[in-house]
Design a protein around this nucleic acid. Structure first.
Lengths: 198, 198
DNA sequence: GAGGCTATGTATAACCT
DNA sequence: TAGGTTATACATAGCCT
């Protein structure tokens, strides 16, 4: 879109990066606005410059309201909104189902009782997923606490050994404490960091 | 950008609006991604289709960063759950409206649109509460992981000292390795176990 | 409805002031 | 550092399958 094709990687030159940021930012916001107008959809766009300055576009009041909370602490919230959206997705999907049910002409006659039933089912599915997530996290925490305990134990053992060695040093004796098991937790070291929470 | 210049107003034809939405949406997300990469900035883009489906782009940062930044949002939790209750009430109310006006297609459609809006609000409130809980748990996990790291570091240090002592033993030399800092993580021991997850 | 095609309108990279 | 110009690369409107 310019004199030359540009590689899709961070622009190293600070000056051109700044210029590109300024130009493309306004371009992006313009396009966001166009999309929201042309297609009558709600859009929220948040851009944090590397210096922490916030630029945003929002077509919806609701989203603006949420984004306002982000404004006070700048960079913090781009991530948060992602998380929210993630949680949001499943529920939105369910809403979509409800919606399509409502829009189907033959289903319009469906009673609200049925709709409420459907919603209850959807809610159940949701809370199931939610509690599963919670469970995974709890397990992760428990495992980590267990690890901590083991590491502390090992640590204590090692310190005792050192203390014993020091003592023997002082007394001019040989070290007699065995070293056979201060590595008994070695396998722990090989375990990759838990990633249940991604 | 196409065969003809397009007026900046809502596209009335439903079909072309849908097509345009699809095409421009992907274009917008592509550009958002490019901007985040080229200029190394954080971007969050959220798009709700008129049917309530969510599309998003987010230049994601590390988990740790998210947690660090999320702390300031704690106060808003109670507010969020309040919103939830409020929205739930309105939601039920809307369902009743739908029920009472099932015979009138036009009104139903309008109510559905209202419902959709309300659902979105509800959804956001819910998500916020949910993600608040998630954040707390994740923070706990992160803290524990940090602890683990420190303990491992301490452990390694202790083992090195022992190895050094052993070596000196074998060579009949005195122990010369200092013990001044193998306790530098001692304060960690005094910290009570986190109990954020109760 | 999703993809592919092309003519055409836009965005923008490199310059310039 | 910002804003204007121009040559190009890119996005996409209208069509078709």
């Amino acid at each position: 879109m310019g004199r030359r094709k540009v590689q899709m990687k961070r622009i190293e030159d600070k000056s051109s990066r700044q210029v590109t940021f300024s130009k493309r930012r306004s371009g992006l916001i313009k396009k966001a606005r166009e999309l929201s107008v042309l297609c009558d959809v709600e859009i929220a766009l948040v851009i944090f410059s590397s210096r922490g300055r916030l630029y945003e576009f929002s077509s919806a009041d609701g989203l603006t309201k949420i984004l306002e909370r982000y404004r006070c602490h700048y960079e913090q919230e781009s991530e948060a909104s992602k998380d929210v959206n993630e949680s949001l997705r499943s529920h939105t999907e369910l809403l979509h189902i409800v919606q399509s049910q409502l829009e189907e002409p033959n289903v319009v006659k469906q009673s609200v009782m049925d709709l409420e039933k459907l919603e209850k089912q959807l809610d159940m599915a949701l809370s199931e997923t939610r509690s599963r997530k919670t469970q995974l996290m709890m397990e992760s925490v428990m495992t980590l606490q267990e690890k901590e305990k083991l590491l502390r134990a090992e640590n204590e053992l090692l310190e005792r050994e050192i203390a014993a060695m020091e003592k023997n040093e002082d007394e001019g004796n040989e070290v007699v404490i065995g070293f056979s098991n201060h590595q008994h937790l070695g396998n722990l070291r090989q375990q990759p960091t838990l990633s249940l929470l991604q």
